[in-house]
Design a protein around this nucleic acid. Structure first.
Lengths: 191, 191
DNA sequence: TAACTATACGGAACAATGTTCCGCTTGTCT
DNA sequence: AGACAAGCGGAACATTGTTCCGTATAGTTA
């Protein structure tokens, strides 16, 4: 059976609107940050708010959709870095830099990733599902090479790094990359 | 002239209400976290919301008032730790532990400390004003002893540590203290 | 092409929350 | 006791995310 078994195809206007919405959201996020009101996105796209919610059940789903590509790219970069670097620890450090750069350039995204932030469980879950395995691979490789401590799980490292990025884009003097780097450096320190 | 020159004394009921409010807020914060709605605090205190806003112009001011004592205690602990420890770096590490413990035990407080979080500038400013000088003192001592890098300002370290604490109380397996410790360890690492 | 129906749409309406406003109450002072 | 500033309660306003439903329309069929 085909790829749409049991599900009717979307109407043409619906498909068009979905793309319009993604573009509008993307633009608004750049202008006003990820916290921008849903209404602003609807206005920019020239549709009603109802239309947004039909396509994306929740604001978080819209955010996920907008950034899916970049998250995938970050995930894909992990194995590549591992292959290109002699030291797994160095690969880890670079991958973390990538992750930090991604978060910092998305006004407010890091702040929303907090697990306790209600209503964004889906966003949180997606990020973790996609990136934690990659981070685990890097950590395991570094551990196997005897470069780091083995008592920190990938989830917690990622969460820590994510937290470090909060508010970074609002203040040039605050260097999230530097702090995340300190974390990774600390991981290598001998007892 | 006396300590109230030019300012009339508060009415007795007003003074009573202020204390009632602080107690109620403190209790509600423990039960429901720092994000608890203003109305809940008003109800618990048995007053109208207007009364809260007359005493504390903004939710942030109420939060500051509730935790002022503990922030002062944390600030005072800095010099003491410096005096009691042979290694300034060790003193710094312990002081950071103190700071982390304070934030983590206040449900949601760390999350609110983010500078970009609008409406909480006063809270943010108070924390920094009071604690950054202490942290600077510790950092300077450690730098003088040649124990750490000197290129990280106290503001940024504190902000990073504060960020690391976000959401920590909601998840037992996430150990903010451990991550903050990693940061401090990383600070000592030689190039 | 003209009707028909499932799909999609717009935006008013609802709920939660911070904050402001104002008519009424109550200490305090004489 | 009377006057009046200080204080109070809570309705009302503004800003969000989200839901709902009457209306419009794309795609299908006669």
């Amino acid at each position: 059976m085909g790829e749409n078994a049991g599900a009717r195809a979307k109407r043409a206007d619906a498909r068009r609107n979905e793309k319009t919405l993604l573009d509008a959201a993307s633009a608004v996020f750049v202008d006003s940050g990820v916290d921008a009101p849903v209404r602003d996105i609807a206005t920019r796209a020239g549709v009603g708010v109802g239309t947004i919610y039909r396509h994306f059940p929740t604001r978080a789903d819209l955010i996920i959709a907008v950034y899916r590509h970049q998250v995938e790219a970050c995930a894909d970069a992990g194995p590549k870095l591992l292959a290109d670097n002699d030291s797994p620890h160095a690969a880890l450090a670079r991958w973390i830099d990538l992750f930090v750069d991604f978060l910092v350039t998305k006004h407010g995204l890091a702040g929303i990733m907090q697990s306790d932030h209600s209503g964004f469980e889906a966003l949180h879950a997606y990020f973790l599902e996609r990136l934690v395995p990659v981070c685990t691979e890097l950590l395991d490789a570094a551990a196997k090479a005897g470069e780091i401590h083995t008592d920190l799980e990938a989830v917690h490292l990622m969460r820590g790094v994510g937290n470090l990025c909060i508010g970074a884009e609002a203040d040039d003097s605050y260097d999230a990359r530097r702090l995340a780097g300190l974390l990774i450096t600390g991981l290598r320190q001998a007892e």
